[in-house]
């Protein structure tokens, strides 16, 4: 029988919005899957492209960045930069034929507990469909 696949989604969440949103989802007892492994960062722009790549190569089935909505970044423009960098990583993945669906950027405000739960659920489902990240077993990385 096939072993049940539990995805691991490394999630970089900004302190001011998305991490608080995730917290809110928790205190409101909204269900979201345990696949989400939250890591607090000060701002979505703190996420160097290499964080995404390292998480991906270390076997994360999905990597999520959560930041404040455009215009709302605590540091004013951090998320615009984060978005550009994310676009670059995605494009690098696409041009090499790597599964860029395993990378996701989402804007979730501090008050959007329900949105956080929805994103977490939907993304987990999407990753379930993609299956296990082949990097999990690869030994030549």
């Amino acid at each position: 029988m096939k072993k049940e696949f539990t995805p691991r989604i490394t999630s970089f969440l900004c302190k001011w919005c998305s991490y608080t949103g995730a917290d809110l989802a928790g205190t409101a007892r909204l269900q979201y899957p345990t696949s989400i492994i939250p890591i607090q960062v000060m701002c979505s722009s703190r996420v160097d492209p290499v964080f995404l790549i390292k998480a991906f190569l270390n076997g994360s089935d999905g990597v999520l960045i959560g930041g404040c909505h455009p215009g709302d970044c605590h540091y004013e423009t951090g998320n615009y930069h984060a978005r550009r960098r994310f676009a670059i990583v995605k494009s690098v993945f696409d041009s090499l034929g790597l599964e860029s669906k395993r990378l996701k950027l989402s804007w979730i405000s501090a008050s959007e507990g329900p949105k956080f739960a929805r994103v977490a659920n939907e993304y987990t489902e999407e990753i379930m469909k993609l299956g296990e990240n082949p990097t999990r077993k690869s030994i030549f990385l």
Binding site: P49, V50, I53, L57, R85, V89, V92, F140, L141
Partner: peptide
Amino acid sequence: TIFFHLGRLTH
């Protein structure tokens, strides 16, 4: 090994 190249590609 792959990390280096993917990293440099994005940088």
